[in-house]
Design a protein around this nucleic acid. Structure first.
Lengths: 181, 181
DNA sequence: TGCAGATCGTTCGCAAGCTAAGGATAAACT
DNA sequence: AGTTTATCCTTAGCTTGCGAACGATCTGCA
């Protein structure tokens, strides 16, 4: 079962390019950009599914929940807005997930002493215990997942991805608006 | 507002490594693997959000819906199971999304003539019109999103990601089981 | 032919995630 | 001081997405 844009076999990939060009007729088409983007997406899904099934699921954590605990563990308590940005989540999403984590006693929410609008999130004892147990296993799996790459390649991958992320975040929007950092 | 694992500034990244090691004490830790994986995830999110906001949303398409239309457009009708795999979706997820696409007349479902269990999905006229209008714009944005990379780097990125995806898909599971290709 | 097991798609229940609207608090201006 | 405006978090409604359970269909074997 060949997966056209993901397959390792260069022939399969080239066939895919030919098929797409056939549909497009004479319209312009940047195949390399398509390959780069679709592979980013597929890799992210593969990695996430793997982690959720093998490491996080058995501990009752989602990817997002794990990320929240990890950030709080390493960098200490944070206000919700900043935490949402650190974790790459919308504020509303974070709010719901914090509810779950708070219910199970992994994190706590307290009012900011001088600004009643703000809320400070901190890791609780149970949360610390969980993240200290789960993170090492998570990191072991990260090693396995990137074991097909050499040390130089791993660094290169991260570097290239940072460029893409920065471009996506900083490119001006064609319509609508958004808060900037 | 520095984002520890994503930031372009190497100093910020190194500080992050130091902070994490401080929490871990003397436990082993593969920082490069962590960087590679977290950057995959962040890049995928950034790219997807961008596309949904600027290209897909205005057309009433989700990322998944777009992917389905694209696959059907290029490679023609497909059975649901194969389509799910091509699109990187679970069968149940695909089923629901096909319902939406069918309701709006973009795709059609028909029974396999010789095997009543199977269902064949095909692009309808409306779907073809949509994908032929949207895909060129989508591809233009892919070009923009990877414009920070040189031609060689784009290829290298795709290559490295294919390795990670293949590793994640093929690595044996520690628990549970899964159908293999 | 008839039953057992396999295969395939759909349905169901749930979590994650987004946006937009709402409500509380703080800041600014008159 | 009081009113408006801005800021921040939460809530509400929706879609996406997964896994498991279900029902329908096909295959194999007696």
């Amino acid at each position: 079962m060949p997966r056209p844009l993901i397959d390792d076999d260069p022939r399969v990939v080239l066939e895919a390019e030919r098929d797409i060009r056939a549909r497009l007729g004479d319209r312009q088409f940047d195949f390399d950009a398509l390959l780069a983007v679709s592979n980013i997406y597929r890799a992210a899904n593969a990695v996430r599914n793997r982690m959720e099934r093998e490491v996080l699921g058995p501990e009752g954590l989602s990817w997002g929940g794990f990320t929240i605990l990890f950030v709080l563990w390493v960098w200490g308590e944070r206000e919700t807005g900043q935490l949402a940005d650190d974790c790459g989540l919308a504020k509303g999403t974070l709010s719901g997930m914090l509810g779950t984590l708070e219910k199970t006693g992994l994190v706590s929410r307290t009012r900011h002493p001088e600004d009643g609008r703000r809320v400070i999130v901190a890791l609780e004892g149970g949360g610390r215990e969980v993240i200290e147990r789960v993170f090492p296993r998570f990191n072991e799996h990260e090693t396995k997942l990137t074991s097909g790459l050499g040390p130089r390649e791993r660094g290169e991958l991260a570097r290239l991805l940072r460029i893409v992320t920065a471009t996506a975040d900083d490119l001006p929007l064609v319509a609508g608006d958004r808060a900037k950092a």
